[in-house]
């Protein structure tokens, strides 16, 4: 088994094919999208492949240490930052091929006009524990 992170971006990924923001969809299109996402996660729980899923607020803050006795420096949000993560799903699957297939399925979630969004999702393998057998 291998764990993969499926990353969804607010910004930084190539544009989706069906790239219409959700606040321009009809109520039925929004409901269909939500149902697709919920069903997808529920099915992965059934197959024993779902680990975690979380969504992030669009805006955050950069923070860094500023020396002994001084409060940390905060800055941002930086509108020019290229990458902005919207959320993630962690899956635990048998193969890279399975992870790609699932990411493809998630990217097919319906959007405007009830048609698949074809959104680009980023697939990142976890760095796992070293195996016991080394020779």
């Amino acid at each position: 088994m291998a764990k993969y992170l499926l990353l969804k971006h607010y910004r930084g990924a190539p544009a989706a094919v069906n790239d219409v923001p959700m606040d321009k969809w009809t109520q039925e299109e929004i409901s269909a999208h939500m149902k697709y996402m919920n069903d997808f996660a529920a099915r992965l729980e059934q197959t024993g492949e779902f680990v975690d899923g979380q969504a992030l607020a669009p805006e955050g803050t950069f923070v860094r240490y500023d020396g002994e006795g001084r409060p940390p420096v905060t800055d941002g949000p930086f509108p020019e930052t290229k990458d902005l993560i919207a959320g993630w799903m962690v899956i635990d699957v048998d193969s890279y091929e399975r992870a790609v297939a699932l990411a493809g399925e998630l990217s097919a979630a319906p959007g405007a006009g009830g048609k698949p969004i074809h959104e680009w999702l980023e697939l990142r393998p976890f760095l796992a524990e070293p195996p016991t057998v080394t020779e």
Partner: peptide, 25 residues
């Protein structure tokens, strides 16, 4: 739509997005 971006939880974000979509469509 702006309020949806600032929403503190998913249920509220979806609700506010729906309100924007309702008026836009």
């Amino acid at each position: 739509a702006e309020a949806a971006r600032k929403a503190p939880n998913l249920a509220e974000r979806d609700h506010l997005t729906r309100q924007a979509a309702r008026l836009n469509t």
